[in-house]
Simulated assay, not measured.
Amino acid sequence: MKRFIAFLIAMFVCGAAFAKQPDALFYLMGTPKSLNSFVAHADKIGLLVPTWYGVDDQGLVNGGPNRYVMDIAKDHRVPVMPIISMSAGRKGFHDLLHDETAKQHMIDSMLQQAEEHGYAGFQFDFENISWTDRDAFSLLAKQTAEALHKHGFKLSIAVVPNAPGHAGEGQFAKWMWQYWRGAYDLAALGKYADLICLMTYDQHTRWTTPGPVDGMPWVIAQLKYALTMVPKEKLSLGIALYGYHWYTGNPVREDGTEASNIKADYIDADEWMPLIQEQHANVQWDSVEHESWFYFYRDDMREWVFIPDAHSFRDRYALINQYGLEGFCAWVLGSEDPKVWDELPVMQR
């Protein structure tokens, strides 16, 4: 019996050792604090996705790598998969989608850059797309994925969460579906791409009233909907590392007219941490939304701050194993609560 128990324990340990480690995808911007965060924590990053490339309506790709970043990535064996995004707005992207020559220019450039710099592939980060371009976007994903795969590269796609699969009741929900949610055919994109990054952040935004950046009930609802169309092995959960700060702005417009002006700015940990001390704010934990928040008064008016801190990160990170996901994709390096890194293991290369 003792030998049998020892055998079971050995099998359990062996299985745990060979279980797939959730992939830790982090986005990188060109700011010093984003770069410094990557350098400090490269060993805990599974895939680096820098914002290096753009494309115009004629398929002209511009951009290039940061050589220092590439050297650090090579030293720590971190694969690099840059973003390619639209540089010509919604109308420009529509024109690109419906121009076969322009699309081929873009794909050819992506292949050339991937081969020259040794990228793992590219990530599509195309947003602000008309819902009427849904099928055209899926076709671009198919064409690009096929071309990249032929040369040994991968395609990942960042998508705006779009449960329940149609426009909602209010005018804001209608606008969100028209230009942000409706363009993503998750089933088609999940079929063509190697990885889908579900951007489960900005539930509340600069365009809305104050609220959680990515409240847990909303995150879970979006995740469950996406899992009905995308295999869990291809799905990466978006985790916000930044917060929002809502306040009352100047009611006088540039033309001299007056109107309500409720504003919100992104706020990173290196900003909200000293703000808490400055304002003697009482940070509170929302056990329903699983997010921290606080408020304070300035000129007798309340200002709201919602912060995805390390506690918030830990609870969302737990969802990856709970649902058997590929991993997570976190926006963006340099924004995070420093204690986030205590929640992550060193990556197994």
Rank of each mutant, 00 (worst) to 15 (best):
residue 269 A to R: 02
residue 85 S to R: 15
residue 262 I to P: 10
residue 321 N to G: 14
residue 251 P to F: 09
residue 200 T to M: 00
residue 39 V to M: 08
residue 227 L to G: 06
residue 267 I to S: 04
residue 214 D to G: 13
residue 197 C to E: 03
residue 116 E to Q: 13
residue 31 T to P: 04
residue 1 M to R: 12
residue 301 M to R: 04
residue 70 M to P: 05
residue 122 F to L: 01
residue 188 A to V: 09
residue 318 A to S: 14
residue 52 W to V: 05
residue 16 A to M: 11
residue 98 H to V: 06
residue 125 D to R: 11
residue 192 Y to A: 05
residue 304 W to K: 08
residue 328 F to S: 13
residue 316 R to S: 05
residue 202 D to G: 03
residue 41 H to Y: 10
residue 28 L to I: 14
residue 164 P to F: 05
residue 246 W to H: 06
residue 69 V to T: 07
residue 237 L to H: 01
residue 255 D to R: 07
residue 160 V to A: 09
residue 95 D to I: 09
residue 89 G to P: 04
residue 228 T to L: 08
residue 213 V to L: 14
residue 76 H to I: 11
residue 305 V to P: 10
residue 51 T to S: 00
residue 251 P to W: 02
residue 212 P to H: 09
residue 245 H to R: 11
residue 268 D to F: 11
residue 36 N to V: 04
residue 164 P to N: 14
residue 211 G to E: 10
residue 108 D to E: 12
residue 101 T to S: 08
residue 215 G to E: 11
residue 334 G to F: 02
residue 36 N to W: 00
residue 67 R to M: 05
residue 220 I to W: 01
residue 222 Q to I: 09
residue 347 M to R: 14
residue 36 N to A: 15
residue 349 R to W: 15
residue 72 I to D: 03
residue 165 G to M: 10
residue 233 E to F: 10
residue 196 I to Y: 07
residue 328 F to Y: 15
